[in-house]
């Protein structure tokens, strides 16, 4: 059997924050991070859903100060490494330094999958500070395996410790995942990870495909809490990887209990695949657009599905939440002119 160590990255407190509209409190963070730390997960990510300083009109304001949340997590994380996400163009090296002072020791520098060079300075700064750095390519369905390898190499050369491929739209089918992960595993000198969204109900299947192709870092969240239809459900992943005999080092029962007893009571709604998140996956739209799209649809009297399809057609990338209003306004004008 395969004895590779599969590192599990829990991002309930980062991607999951989208699903609770960035309202995690320091007490909730303490409970979740403290619980997760005892389950054998390797990395616990805590930040605004759109990365540090994502608390804005564009992405939604955090209810509590982000740095207080990072600090609260750091007080209870003893075994795992503590991560943040940083999207260049939103967060800066100055913000990274502040997160480090509050306890973050891993940074995942996230760029659109064709724009890795905007993150070089952040990876280099993190390495200089002694942090672990991950080059995080978003919306990987929009680029070919060859293009992704070229971009991953930019991060590798900047000093990244591993590359994470994010299927931010939850668009990929298992064979698409295999082609991408396989290309990177064979072309890079550093490990490869994968981040799934469950918009097409393939998050666990795609995570299996990634590991079968050589990925050794997998992102997941309790109850699948996350943008769009959510991420890979960590307690399910633990059980499935257990059955497959993968070495994750996770305590299957402990993670089930964190998900059921600590995370589920905090959730605003069950993480199910309704029509709009399904359409995110189908049309290839950034999962974080979901709740903003519901709001715009209501304001402009539109069907969320029509907004999402138009966003996909325009090939909008991660972070362009402002274009939801642009599209909604244009569709509403069109409708009124008919």
């Amino acid at each position: 059997m395969d004895n590779r160590k599969i590192n599990i990255v829990d991002t309930t407190l980062r991607d999951g924050s989208h699903a609770v509209s960035h309202s995690f409190s320091p007490e909730q963070v303490t409970a979740i991070a403290g619980g997760l730390d005892k389950t054998g997960v390797d990395i616990i990510e805590c930040a605004h859903g759109d990365g540090i300083t994502g608390s804005t009109f564009n992405y939604g304001f955090s209810k509590y100060k982000e740095m207080d949340l990072i600090n609260a997590a750091s007080k209870v994380i003893k075994n795992a490494k503590q991560a943040i996400l940083l999207i260049p163009g939103i967060g800066t090296i100055e913000d990274l330094e502040e997160a480090y002072e509050n306890g973050a020791r891993v940074v995942r520098v996230a760029t659109h999958c064709t724009e890795a060079d905007v993150g070089i300075q952040h990876i280099q700064a993190a390495k200089k500070m002694g942090m672990m750095a991950c080059g995080f390519l978003m919306m990987v369905h929009m680029a070919s395996p060859e293009k992704l390898l070229e971009q991953a190499k930019i991060f590798q050369e900047a000093g990244a410790d591993y590359i994470n491929l994010a299927d931010s739209a939850g668009y990929l089918l298992p064979d698409d995942v295999k082609a991408r992960v396989d290309k990177l595993v064979n072309g890079l000198d550093i490990p490869v990870g994968f981040h799934a969204h469950n918009n097409l109900s393939l998050a666990v299947a795609n995570s299996i495909a990634a590991v079968e192709s050589g990925a050794t870092y997998i992102d997941a969240t309790c109850r699948g809490l996350g943008a769009g239809a959510g991420n890979t459900q960590i307690e399910v992943l633990a059980a499935v990887f257990n059955r497959l005999g993968y070495n994750t080092g996770m305590d299957m029962y402990a993670i089930q209990d964190v998900a059921e007893e600590i995370v589920e009571p905090i959730m605003h709604r069950p993480q199910v695949i309704k029509t709009a998140p399904l359409m995110l996956g189908y049309a290839g739209v950034y999962s974080s657009f979901l709740l903003h799209t519901y709001r715009a649809a209501e304001k402009f009297g539109l069907n969320p599905r029509d907004i999402l399809v138009e966003l996909g057609r325009r090939r909008m990338v991660g972070g362009q939440e402002d274009m939801i209003v642009d599209v909604a306004y244009a569709l509403a004008q069109e409708k009124n002119n008919k």
Binding site: T56, N58, G89, I90, H112, T114, E115, V118, M142, R314, R315, M316, V317, G319, Q320, D322, M323, V325, D326
Partner: peptide
């Protein structure tokens, strides 16, 4: 201030919200 780079083809016009 937030900056976004979009690689769509044909290239998108500069847009500011």
């Amino acid at each position: 201030a937030i900056i976004i780079l979009n690689p769509a083809e044909p290239p998108v016009m500069m847009c500011n919200t």
